[in-house]
Amino acid sequence: MSEAQSPLWDAPADRTALFEAEALAALDGLYRTALRLTRVPADSEDLVQETYLKAFRAAESFTPGTNLRAWMFTILHNTFRNRLRDRAREPVQADSEAVERVGDLPSSAGETPETLLLRDVLAPELQAAIDDLPEAFRQAVWLRDVEEFAYADIAGMLGVPIGTVMSRISRGRRLLFERLNRGKLAHV
């Protein structure tokens, strides 16, 4: 936490340059994640641009030594939520609540044939299936399994407790499994 511990952060000018370079290195991941949120490339670009505007302006509130990439993703999600709120729709909240009420998924998963079928699923089909998940599940699975964030970081981004993050990851994966299997079995 102490700035003096890291020689990288010694000079203010260096510190700013490093901060900016590291923040910009997160661009591709932020854009991909924005696409999962908005589903529209133009909206995603807007969202990412606003994220950087806020991040650079708030640079002084970033604690050196903590996870800058996670901090950028948190700003992205906050910005997205604020935009929805500005439009007075708040579908995120409604969606999340509906999602938490979803009961346990049917446990029809067998041991081998279905899991083997999933091996053939290619990236475009998988991407489409992920994008079809309800938003809360989609974000949790995406941030965990594709962008590889820790549970606690994701909890901060989505503004939900860590237990909820884990249960959304779990349900999201199972839902993905069920849907891809159904598609596969239909073609057999």
């Binding site: 998924l105 446990s107 998963a109 067998g110 041991e111 279905e114 899991t115 999933l118 091996r119 699923v121 998988l126 992920i130 699975v141 399994d145 594709v146 779990s170 994966r173 199972r174 993905l176 499994f177 069920e178 891809l180």
Partner: peptide
């Protein structure tokens, strides 16, 4: 099994 299969696929 289901969770692991989806995780492995991703």
């Amino acid at each position: 099994t289901a969770e692991r299969a989806a995780y492995a696929l991703v």
